[in-house]
Every structure is written in structure tokens, then in C-alpha cells.
Design a protein around this nucleic acid. Structure first.
Lengths: 202, 202
DNA sequence: CTCTTTATGGTTCGATCGAACCATAACACG
DNA sequence: CGTGTTATGGTTCGATCGAACCATAAAGAG
């Protein structure tokens, strides 16, 4: 063989080029030649590592998803040993906000893939399952919080978790469009968490 | 002249073809030839009515916005003479949900334009102003509701209106992705309106 | 020291893109 | 009854696209 090379690293290097191009001009600017130039490799390598363009787009998305999951778990672990339900829910919701360059890029890439998510059956499943799992996760955390007394018993955990996640996603797009600052988004989520974790306020 | 023709009608006919193609394959599938075929006109007409492709995309978006505003006003007017603040807020939020084919198409088109909204300065302004105005509108309605007693005085109308709009937008994407049914989205919004319009529940 | 496999660069092909250009039929107006 | 403007169809051009193909250097296996 030639100089042995880390395939996963190469694939990641190429995937990152896809992300950058997608965030700049949408999928329509993600052409093989552009990606090759952006990743500083020959166009031939894209074929070698991903084959066709469709599989390149799919592969870049899978790497993005893996990254997202890993980084999210990492950040949640950094909350300490017994974080409390409110901190955990906040941590989960913050993953949905573009609070740093990494998450901003990630959510912009998802936005670029949105139409394929809706129309392409191959991608639809991934898009359908992931945020639904998030909602169940938050719902489970709220249930735990109710048992530990952090959440008052009259709270509808199903509805509240669903609306919390929906609100976070709405704030995500709002921040990406420049309508709200990241700080405003955090503040609004905190205000809603006040409503869920303390019964007296609406 | 040749047979006098309604220019606005023609432009609308072409714009609708753009919308359909954008919802199916994203902006990357909105090519001049595809649009011409879809609209059943010659490619030459696209140049005649819109000029370049960029201006076609911009024009199609402007027509979509005009339609949205008109239909929204129409539906809100159908609420009757003195609808009450809750009904008005609900009506505004429902405009953000894909509750019928028209609104589903509209929001899918916006999704297809999302990356340009973020990156292209020409489109950024339109995207930045519109939902912000919505938020102010809801906020104003909540203020009126507080004066009329429909909304309890301790409610933070700024924060609640912002999170209501964010939640509706999050539910919009959720419904488009097939994670929630339109009925579920309506129900979740109703649950949150319960919290804003009645002080006892969180 | 071959030989085969692996990783990579470069080139080419048919299709399609956006845009400019050429032609002309339809009709109002003088 | 021209005649010039308006609306439309068709064609063409250079660029670029995705993908297949050809070539070869590097390195482990025998």
C-alpha cells in the first residue's frame, strides 16, 4: 500500500468540507468539485471514499450525527454527578441551540438537509426518530423530577416536554436567522423552565 | 401587442411552479428548464418575466409572502367581530402551522429558502423582520388581554409571546417532518394557551 | 526482490445548466 | 393599411456537473 492513512480521518476531513459548503450555499453548492477544493483533496478521492454524490451527502450527515451525539453526551457528563433534573433538561435543550460555532454549524447543516428529510425516504427515518427520542428523554426527566419533588404533580409532563423541545427548536431557527441573540434564547428557555419547575408561575 | 395577457397572473403561475419544485427537491432542483416545464411555458418566458434565476427565486418568494399576508388577514377576519384575545392569538399561531396544503407548501418553501435567508443579505432582511413582527403582534394581543382580564397580570407578556411563537415554529418543523400530527400541534398550543390565559396552571 | 494490493491524481464524456441571442406572431395605434 | 411595440418560441454557447475511466506511486506479502 501507499502511506497507510486513517480512513475515518479522511472521511471526516471531507465531511467537514461538505458541512462548510452546505452552510454557505445550501446543498445546491455542494458539488463534487467544490467539496474537493474545500477539503483540499482531488475529486477522485471523493469517489474513492464515498462513491456517488448521494452517498457523500448521506455519509457527511451520518458523521455529523455521530459527532452530535458524542458531544452532547460529553457536555451532559460535564454537569457533574447528580445534576438535578432542571440542569439536565436545560442541558438537553441547549444542544438544540446554536450556542457555539460547532452547534451553529450543525444546525445550519440540518437546515440545509431539511427538504431531503421531508421528501427522501432514506433520510426521513433519521430525521423522524431523532427529535422524537429527545422529547421522550425530556419527558422522562420531567417524570423523574416529579417523583423527586422538583416538578409539581399537576404538570402534564408529556405536553410540557413536547412544547419545551418545540420551543427550543423554534428558538434555534430564530437565533440562526438573527432574530434573537443566543442569550435571549437561553433566557426564554429559563423562563419556561421556571413555569415547569415551580407551580406558582404561569 | 399580441393577445393581451395578465402579467401578474403569469408571474403567479410561474411562481407556483417554483414553489412546487422547491418543496420537492429544494432550491437545487429549481432550474430554469424544470420551472418552465412545470409551469408549462417556454424557458424564454422565465427570462422575460423574471430575468435571471436569482430574480426568479426572489420574485417567487415575494409572491409567496404577499399570498401569506393576504390569506392570514382573511382567516383572522373570519373569526368574527370581537373574537377575544385568545382566539386571535390562536389564529396568529395557526398561521405558522402546516394545517392545510396551502400552509404546508408555504412553510416547506420557506424551509427550502432557509440557508439563503441566513447567508444572502438581500433575503436576510425579509426573513429577519417578518417573524419578529409576529412576536410583537402576539405580545400586543397579550397586553390587551391583560387589560381586559383575560390574561392574569403576573404573566410576562414579552416572554410568553416569544416562547409561544417559538413553540409554534418548532411544531411547524415537527409536523413537516412527520413527528407530530397537525392535531397534536394544535393540542400542544392549546395547552400552552391554557397556561397563559389561566393563572392557576403552569 | 518481485508482485499484488491500496491509495491517489488526472482526464474525459455525455448531460445539463444559466443566459444570451434570433425569429416572429399578435395586436394597438397612427 | 401599414408599422412599431409586445409577448412568445426556439436555438445556441461556454461552463460546469456527476461519474466513469486510465494511470501510477507507495508499501506490505511472498
Amino acid at each position: 500500500m501507499p502511506r497507510q492513512v486513517d480512513h475515518d480521518l479522511r472521511r471526516r476531513q471531507i465531511a467537514q468540507a461538505v458541512w462548510r459548503l452546505a452552510t454557505r450555499g445550501g446543498l445546491e453548492h455542494v458539488t463534487l468539485r467544490q467539496v474537493a477544493t474545500e477539503a483540499e483533496v482531488s475529486a477522485r478521492l471523493l469517489q474513492y471514499y464515498f462513491g456517488t454524490r448521494d452517498r457523500l451527502l448521506l455519509g457527511a450527515l451520518e458523521i455529523l450525527n455521530a459527532d452530535a451525539e458524542q458531544r452532547a453526551g460529553q457536555r451532559l457528563a460535564e454537569l457533574g454527578e447528580a445534576p438535578g433534573m432542571r440542569a439536565l433538561v436545560r442541558g438537553v435543550l441547549w444542544e438544540l441551540l446554536p450556542l457555539d460555532e460547532e452547534r451553529r454549524t450543525r444546525h445550519l447543516v440540518y437546515a440545509a438537509y431539511f427538504i431531503p428529510f421531508v421528501t427522501d425516504p432514506a433520510l426521513a427515518s433519521a430525521a423522524r426518530d431523532s427529535p422524537r427520542a429527545l422529547e421522550d428523554l425530556v419527558s422522562g426527566l420531567l417524570d423523574q423530577g416529579r417523583q423527586s419533588g422538583e416538578v409539581p404533580p399537576e404538570v402534564d409532563t408529556e405536553a410540557e416536554s413536547a412544547f419545551l423541545v418545540a420551543g427550543a427548536i423554534g428558538l434555534q431557527t430564530s437565533v440562526l436567522l438573527g432574530q434573537h441573540s443566543p442569550e435571549q434564547a437561553v433566557e426564554l428557555i429559563e423562563h419556561r423552565l421556571d413555569g415547569v419547575f415551580a407551580p406558582s408561575l404561569g
